[in-house]
Design a protein around this nucleic acid. Structure first.
Lengths: 205, 205
DNA sequence: GTCTATAGATTGATAGAC
DNA sequence: GTCTATCAATCTATAGAC
């Protein structure tokens, strides 16, 4: 099974992988479609066959990170774990995902930070919305089983989980320099402590 | 009275204000020192008299946001309020501060996100460290009075407070497009709900 | 030194053959 | 699905006027 002759199936994925590396390293403006095509070993026109525009390709790269997150949620979809164990696992793996894909994570954060109203809507609809809503759903499910204190908004809880992990990622360089930040190089420990507080903060009774 | 003849006192502040506007609008690379001098109505040499380099001036602009935060902490330094009321007030005003100074807030976030180890240390020492440590101190004080659950790290709590507010600011454009985000345009309500969870999560017993 | 004009290269995107 | 050929628009860099 040499990879020499696989015409179509890998095509799109190859382009996506090449684009991810390049965009992560040089940003949207710093990369040309020709460059992506060359690295992927296809023609420029082929890139436009799979992705209707450079921006669509870019959003697809960002979306790939969310797809990884959704895959992670699937891993915890089973009935076997309790609410707390599930949320802890999701948060831990989410942070692990962010750290394992630094380049794309940074792209998403930059894009969100810099986006105006219109771009924000685009990012929500085409990149972030589904993943976030699925996380909210997990929490809503917990609420319907009486695991949550009354008055706690599942959307806000999901937002806090994301905020904590994004913050860990984006301020690591500063945290490391702060004295007394024990968890700066230990995402596992960080995630555990954050969820200790969060779960204790939202638990019923 | 008239502002016509105030040679030195306002000088530094005028330059700082001019630089803040320009950096916020065009970023570090997009602004020349000559430009700053012109807007401030002083000579370029005067700028270098007050700030030893363009980067020092830039860091001073970032630091001005932290100075505002420290002033805010002073407002809550009195003995009159309880621990919870104090933390709630600090968080609310902190978010208000971030939103009222969008440009500089964005600069800081960008700078932190993009910084490597060395720049992270610089940002910590010359911009962010003092403010953050003072927030940690407030929480430590609460702990020493038995307001915190055992095992809760004050540094992590401070980090979570910052994370929540930064996240609100930087993902507003996305939150607005998400269905069911009630607090997207209501920082007061957001802050209240976040602190509901956080305080409940860290409270003793 | 500063501005304007312009030549040349490169960009994102499309058309049409295979 | 993939290619070659080609489009108009934009960017880069330089030449020359002031």
């Amino acid at each position: 099974m040499s990879a020499a002759a696989s015409p179509s199936p890998a095509g799109r994925e190859t382009i996506l992988a090449a684009a991810a590396e390049l965009f992560a390293a040089k940003g949207f403006a710093g990369v040309s479609v020709r460059e992506v095509a060359e690295r992927a070993g296809v023609s420029k026109a082929n890139v436009f066959h799979h992705f209707s525009s450079k921006d669509t390709l870019y959003l697809a790269v960002l979306r790939s990170a969310v797809t990884r997150f959704e895959a992670l949620l699937d891993d915890y979809a089973g009935e076997r774990d309790g609410f707390e164990v599930r949320l802890r696992g999701i948060s831990r793996d989410h942070l692990q995902n962010i750290l394992a894909n630094e380049g794309v994570s940074r792209l998403i954060i930059r894009e969100v930070l810099e986006s105006d109203v219109h771009r924000g809507q685009e990012l929500t609809e085409r990149v972030l919305g589904d993943g976030f809503n699925r996380l909210v759903e997990v929490i809503r499910e917990g609420r319907s089983r009486g695991e949550l204190r009354g008055g706690v908004d599942p959307v806000l809880v999901a937002s806090l989980m994301v905020a904590a992990n994004v913050h860990f990622f984006q301020s690591r360089s500063v945290m490391r320099a702060l004295s007394g930040v024990a968890y700066a190089d230990d995402p596992e420990s960080y995630s555990t402590q954050v969820m200790d507080i969060l779960l204790n903060g939202i638990a019923s009774r």
